[in-house]
Amino acid sequence: MANLTSEQAKQLSDNFFMLSTALLDFRVANWDSLSKDDHQILSDARSKSLEFGEQILALATSLIMNEVAESLDTINQVTTDIKGTIKNLKNIQKGLNIAAAILVLGIAVLEKDPGKIGESIKGMVGAWGEG
């Protein structure tokens, strides 16, 4: 048996909705002539129709998942690629910062100043670690 589609489930839900309104309209039109038992039967049937309709409508939404699985995968892949591109572009900034830090380290080495060398190494590590 073929699986139910979301559209078919929605149609089914609409049918239960129509049925429940028809049951209430019938009850209202014949209010005084119906027995207490008749009222109860019609009221229960209407309640059940409403509940089935609501439940099937929720199911129709879940069924959409099967229908969009491929599209979801594609968009998620594109989004991951976009994030990768953004990261690459941001890495250029990181590269510039590291270049500056290396230059500062070079100056410190030329000066043979251990204190400055230590500071510059820290600066370079910091530039490497950011982002």
Binding site: S6, F17, L57, A58, T61, E67, S71, T74
Partner: peptide, 28 residues
């Protein structure tokens, strides 16, 4: 280019969920 077709599908289905199904629950 890569995203357009699947995005159209997703937006259409999302619209269906919101307007037909969620609003449908409100009818009930």
């Amino acid at each position: 280019e890569q995203a357009n077709d699947p995005l159209q599908v997703l937006l259409k289905k999302f619209e269906q969920i919101v307007q037909a199904n969620l609003k449908g629950e409100l009818q009930f």
